[in-house]
Design a protein around this nucleic acid. Structure first.
Length: 196
DNA sequence: TGCCTGATTGCCT
DNA sequence: GGCAATCAGGCAA
C-alpha cells in the first residue's frame, strides 16, 4: 500500500471541502501498543462565527484554542464528563473551523482496537466520535498535534477511486440542527447512523 | 427493535 | 448551576 501524507494545502481548503475530501482517507496511529488505522467514512463540518453549534462561535478561549490554530492539526475535546471527540482543524491559522471525525472503518490493528473497546463487533468498533477515539488510542495530549507527523497522521492512497458520499444534517446537536454539514460514504455499514 | 436514562466533568453564563 | 458535537444498558412491546 503506497499511502501518502496529505499536504498542508489540503487543509487550507474550504472547511466543507476538507470534510468531504477526508472521506476515504486513513487515520493512522503508531502507539506503543501497536499500529492501528481506519478509513474515514463519516465527518461533520464545524464552521466559525456563523455556526452557533461550533465551539468557535463565541470566539477563542483556552478550551478551543486548537481550533484556531494552524490547519491540519488535532483538536480534542472533552464532552459529557467521560468522552473525547477528535477534530481536524481546517482553514488558515486564526480561523476557528474544524472537521469532526464521526466514524471509521477499521483497517489495521483490529485486535488491539477490540481490546481497547471491549467488543469484537467490527461494525461497532469505530461507529461514533467517542468510539473511534477509544479504539484508536487517541488521548487529549494529541491536541494541537500536526497530522502530517508520526505517531498520529492522516494518509491517503493517491490512486483511490473517487468517493461517493451522502450529505445530511449533523447529529447530537441542540443548535443549528438543520444545517447540512454531515458527510458519510454512501452505503458504508460503518457510519454511526444511516443517512435519512 | 427502539425509546429512555444514568454516568460524570469542565466550561460558560 | 446547567448544559454538552455521547454511549451502553435496561426495559417494554
Amino acid at each position: 500500500m503506497a499511502y501518502e501524507l496529505l499536504p498542508e494545502a489540503f487543509y487550507l481548503q474550504n472547511t466543507l471541502t476538507v470534510a468531504q475530501q477526508l472521506l476515504g482517507t486513513y487515520l493512522v496511529h503508531e502507539s506503543a501498543e501497536g499500529r492501528t488505522s481506519g478509513r474515514i467514512v463519516e465527518t461533520e463540518a464545524y464552521l466559525g462565527s456563523q455556526d452557533p453549534a461550533s465551539h468557535a462561535f463565541r470566539g477563542r478561549t483556552a478550551r478551543n484554542a486548537a481550533m484556531f490554530g494552524a490547519p491540519g492539526r488535532v483538536y480534542i475535546y472533552f464532552i459529557y464528563g467521560m468522552y473525547y471527540h477528535m477534530n481536524v482543524t481546517a482553514a488558515p491559522e486564526g480561523v476557528g473551523e474544524a472537521v469532526l471525525l464521526r466514524a471509521l472503518e477499521p483497517a489495521e490493528g483490529i485486535p488491539l482496537m477490540q481490546a481497547r473497546r471491549g467488543t469484537g463487533d467490527l461494525l461497532k468498533l469505530c461507529s461514533g466520535p467517542a468510539k473511534l477515539v477509544i479504539a484508536m488510542g487517541v488521548t487529549p495530549e494529541f491536541s494541537g498535534h500536526d497530522l502530517r507527523r508520526s505517531p498520529l497522521c492522516i494518509m491517503e492512497d493517491p490512486e483511490h477511486d473517487p468517493v461517493q458520499f451522502d450529505t445530511t444534517t449533523r447529529i447530537g446537536l441542540t443548535k443549528a440542527t438543520d444545517s447540512l454539514l454531515r458527510f458519510c460514504i454512501t452505503g458504508s455499514p460503518f457510519v454511526s447512523r444511516k443517512p435519512m
